[in-house]
Write a protein that binds this DNA or RNA. Structure first.
Lengths: 339, 339
DNA sequence: TTGTATGCGTTATCAG
DNA sequence: CTGATAACGCATACAA
């Protein structure tokens, strides 16, 4: 087993000083051609690579970025992560990922673990529990220490930092417009509890689209489902109790569930009832019928978040100005709606 | 902005030496109660946390593990990652993820980036291109440097290291058995090119199940699809050209595609034709009909991989014995098959 | 009980 | 052109 070789080894072997080796390997003008060649050849032969940890300690820069997301087995977060990783990698950064598992405590623990020198900045999306508790002290801690932070998708106004979100309200608005234009009038909304920032926004979009079109809002047509562990009975009784000709769901899982049950009841999609979902993940593409969906542009979101973060990390001056990037959402029309 | 505080700061502030502070914070017996209390109180007040990088440099242990996977927007890898992250986190390790994007070059670059001190060991699944080229020098490099490596799912015999795979052959065998037991005789296999280790194994299982049951093997019933960018026409003509009453697909995407087309042709699933897929991801669960599937137990696989790796990382003696853990695959029966 | 010195691997400054 | 030294933050063997 060939041990990792260090500057010291090379220096000893070639009978020069460590600093000479260091300079030679950086092709410094200070060092004579002969010496450089000798050292470089030796280094190459033994496959010398500088130790990242030592460099990090010296530079106080790790070239690592920390990503904390609520869940990874979830298409949207996965695409965002992809965008982050792609951009970060191109800039020579590595990505360390922690999953908060929608838990406040894990989110806090993970942040603290990483905040002690392991990373140069954070990209994160808030856990459900954090949003519910509305407690953001761990984020404050971190930003006060001067560690850059970029929040995406699930964000909060309580924290001053860069953010990137999609225009959720607009997305919902567009979706409802689309449904109205195709003649639908009894449009239901299937959403989560209000403490999710995205659900709130989407609900707003839904409501204002109806309002702008002079449609009375019927509270009975809004179904709130738990974020996890959807009970089919809840959906079932909702559709039994209401006459509905179109449904907007705040995520694709809800949409798939609803479509299945509604089809079981003998309704045809989209002839009898239209469906539009959010997220536009793999389920939307492969559902039967294929689901019309508001795309969240996860990968783009990730790239932008990474770009914002790295800019902050690499900017010398402590700029105290924070941006919120809003990505326009777009409607991907498929088979679950009519024109 | 409160800067990160170090031992040196505390020492200076309290007019003691750095080592006294260091020991006091470790509650060393050497230090007097008074001094300890004073130092600990001060440290707590200023929220002192040791710098991970410095500790890594000192200990030559980063408490980071590197994960290199071909793709993250893919349910199986995502569940494996979940398992890795869960276990690693519990043991105080962080996970840095790189995506090879099925590219040999990216795999190599990522490994080299991480092998220079950033991580204590690797967990990886080979990229498609790597398997195609059959070139594993980058893995050899790393293992020769004494960096522990665990391969999962997409593995190779060329490298001596710990491995964890599912019993793909057995899984396929069981699936075919199931189909035979329900009276099916014209069983098709939809697979990828041979250079994927998993496809090879699954094909073996398919063939031996047929053989063991005295069914003649019909090469026409084996459809090889490209791993990416499936062309629906290929599937279409396959089903037009062959009479088939059951299909085993080596992944769920293939299965979904086939089911959709077959249904379009007017066949009923499972009455006319049965389907079994591999992976058992989100698509299998939400397909119509729900897809019977060979579960790959991704999370378990990830946990085991992480456990194996951390054991190696933490074992002092250089044990030159490598294990291959084989996880039994199980058949999840749903609506796409009959009894 | 406390402090000094040394080292982890690297780079930068300054002296020779 | 080359090398000694200090520093990054921490831990520890050893000295006082």
């Amino acid at each position: 087993m060939r041990q990792k070789i260090t500057l010291k080894h090379i220096a000893r072997e070639l009978d020069v000083s460590i600093s000479t080796v260091s300079k030679a390997l950086k092709n410094s003008e200070e060092i004579s051609r002969d010496t450089k060649e000798k050292i470089q050849a030796f280094a190459k032969l033994y496959n010398y690579k500088p130790n990242n940890i030592a460099i990090s300690l010296k530079n106080k820069r790790t070239k690592n970025i920390g990503v904390i997301i609520p869940e990874i087995v979830h298409h949207f977060f996965t695409t965002v992560f992809r965008g982050i990783e792609k951009y970060a990698n191109k800039q020579g950064y590595n990505v360390v990922v922690c999953i908060s598992d929608e838990s406040f405590d894990k989110e806090v623990i993970n942040m603290e673990m990483l905040a002690n020198g392991s990373i140069d900045g954070f990209i994160m999306s808030l856990s459900a529990e954090t949003q519910l508790k509305n407690d953001y002290n761990h984020l404050k801690e971190v930003t006060e220490q001067g560690i850059p932070l970029v929040l995406f998708d699930r964000v909060t106004n309580e924290i001053q930092c860069d953010k990137v979100v999609i225009n959720d309200r607009e997305g919902a608005y567009l979706a409802v417009q689309k449904l109205l234009k195709s003649g639908r009038r009894k449009i239901a909304l299937v959403t989560t509890e209000d403490y999710f920032s995205v659900s709130r926004e989407r609900t707003q979009g839904y409501l204002s689209a109806l309002r702008d079109n002079g449609i009375a809002i019927d509270g009975n047509l809004i179904l709130k489902l738990p974020y996890m562990d959807v009970q089919e009975e809840d959906i079932d009784s909702f559709f039994d109790g209401n006459e509905v000709d179109a449904v907007l769901c705040v995520n694709e899982i809800f949409a798939i569930h609803c479509m299945r049950l509604v089809q079981k009841k003998g309704l045809r999609i989209p002839e009898d009832i239209s469906f539009i979902g959010f997220t536009d993940g793999i389920l939307s593409k492969y559902a039967t019928p294929r689901l019309t969906s508001v795309a969240q542009h996860g990968e783009e979101m990730g790239q932008i978040a990474a770009k914002m973060l790295i800019e902050k990390v690499e900017s010398e001056e402590e700029v105290e100005v924070y941006r919120t990037e809003i990505i326009e959402s777009t409607l991907i029309e498929r088979e679950s709606t009519i024109n």
